[in-house]
């Protein structure tokens, strides 16, 4: 089971967990990303490439299902304006055992960061600036390139 959502509305963790558990397996691993309030960020705005975003997320989810034999992969990403403390992203991997669920969960968020067309813009006071991509994100995504497991 794959569930992908790119949405303006807040992420409902309970509803997503229910979905992940309904896939029927022994383990669910999840990751939730929150908007950081560091450096005085007042608003974070997410832009994306409609159509291409959903296709990229689907590819990430399919990759995880194939590699770890998951019974479910869930990716929910918010777009539009949001405030510090709000959930920006949620991923879940449902598998028979914790090892596969935990690894697949890390894969989902690592790959999402480099493979899906989202762009963050931070506003501090009256100044808005686009967030720069981080090299560390590419290193995190690259560790899944066919080396392990």
């Amino acid at each position: 089971m794959i569930h992908i959502s790119v949405q303006q509305s807040p992420i409902d963790i309970a509803a997503e967990m229910t979905r992940a558990e309904a896939a029927g397996a022994g383990a669910v691993a999840t990751f939730t990303g929150l908007v950081r309030a560091d450096d005085g960020v007042g608003t974070l705005e997410l832009e994306h490439y409609p159509g291409a975003t959903e296709a990229a997320l689907l590819k990430v989810a399919e990759g995880a299902i194939e590699r770890w034999g998951l019974s479910a992969a869930i990716i929910v990403h918010r777009v539009g304006p949001m405030q510090p403390g709000e959930r920006i992203v949620f991923v879940a991997a449902t598998a028979a055992h914790r090892g596969a669920a935990l690894e697949a969960c890390a894969y989902l968020i690592d790959r999402l960061k480099t493979d899906a067309p989202f762009w963050k813009r931070e506003t501090r006071g009256v100044t808005a600036s686009w967030v720069e991509a981080r090299n560390g994100d590419h290193a995190a995504a690259a560790r899944w390139d066919k080396s392990t497991s």
């Binding site: 990303g33 990403h77 899906a116």
Partner: peptide, 10 residues
């Protein structure tokens, strides 16, 4: 064809 900066989601 789309042209854009490096992505920064998640």
């Amino acid at each position: 064809i789309a042209i854009f900066p490096p992505v920064t989601g998640g």
